[in-house]
Write a protein that binds this DNA or RNA. Sequence first.
DNA 1: CGTCTATTTGAATGTACTCAAAAGCGGTGG
DNA 2: CCACCGCTTTTGAGTACATTCAAATAGACG
Lengths: 192, 192
Amino acid sequence: MYKQLRQQINKIIDLTDEEFDYFTTFAKLKKLRRKELVLTEGEVCRHAYFVKTGCLRYFYTVQGEQHTGQFFFESAWYADYESFLSGQPSRQNIEALENTEIIMIPKTALEKLYQEVPKFEKFGRLMAEKAFMGLRQRTEMITNQSPEERYLNLIKQRPKLIERIPQHYIASYLGVKPQSLSRIRKRIIQNP
Amino acid sequence: MYKQLRQQINKIIDLTDEEFDYFTTFAKLKKLRRKELVLTEGEVCRHAYFVKTGCLRYFYTVQGEQHTGQFFFESAWYADYESFLSGQPSRQNIEALENTEIIMIPKTALEKLYQEVPKFEKFGRLMAEKAFMGLRQRTEMITNQSPEERYLNLIKQRPKLIERIPQHYIASYLGVKPQSLSRIRKRIIQNP
DNA sequence: CGTCTATTTGAATGTACTCAAAAGCGGTGG
DNA sequence: CCACCGCTTTTGAGTACATTCAAATAGACG
């Protein structure tokens, strides 16, 4: 049932069977249909989400425009840390781009685990550190690279993403308009 | 001696006098002159830095150009998390913009503290979470706002920074050329 | 097949960039 | 005290590239 989850957690900390079983008593499964939201802006993010199958996208809206923050595929974790930690309403939306199965861990459960089992405090730290590094990579991509470079890098580093995600979402993720991404692709095809 | 440090840490976790004293046994003081680097790209970041007085800037170089990531003033913490955590050479430089006094905490000390005192594990988690939120704010500023909006926001949110930091560093922080920032300022002065 | 959405293409526009040079400012030494 | 030097900031002119507005084409799904 939770084998996949166990594998991912094992990459971060070693849990005994008991500890993992205890962890899973708090887990909730949820199935999402394509385009369904698991978090809507204005709500407080009270869960961490683990993608079992499918794909999530988080985005936020600025002046009526959607900005895509990130995509998450099988075995990835996500939560809107800002809302999750502060308890403030989230400005993000988290949406399933395909029919998607997720495992939800309530914040309250994590807090309980942090207190009861020191090992989970370490888990929490490592997750936050990992999240930080992921975001930094993303930030550098946006600040240091031209749209064309960003797209070429994405092809190189996450080729499966290109095949799986509709182009206008990729444009939004790269920080350009769909028309611009279309032209970028054209340029790339014409010039080796 | 370490009163200022104690105050800042108290904002995050409660430490007993003994715990704090133990913590400070690992601390090292360092004075930096203006323009001096405390971390150079290629080195591994083995310390967390706490600014006692003065100001630090971290930047990295892309195709010969400096990109300023962030400024840190009195009572701020910094470390290149990526290098600090992974042990890989840093791509960042950390520089004093003024004569600056810092307190350095070795990574090895933190690891020891994490193991020995559970409370510090929590401290580590909270610091990572805080770092994450700071970076996210920065990322959104870059992705969602025009250079002019970024500058106006900076004036509003960190007015002291504007007075204290030379303009070309601010331009670099905002992701524009110094000439462009100069023109932005001109526009702002002319139009209310 | 027809409708709706996604992608592509075209033309005009705007904004930051580059290259270049002038003006401003701070510090040093005569 | 002033003259000079290096560095910062400003200004000008021309360019590059993503954007906007608009429309055509292509694909997906009922």
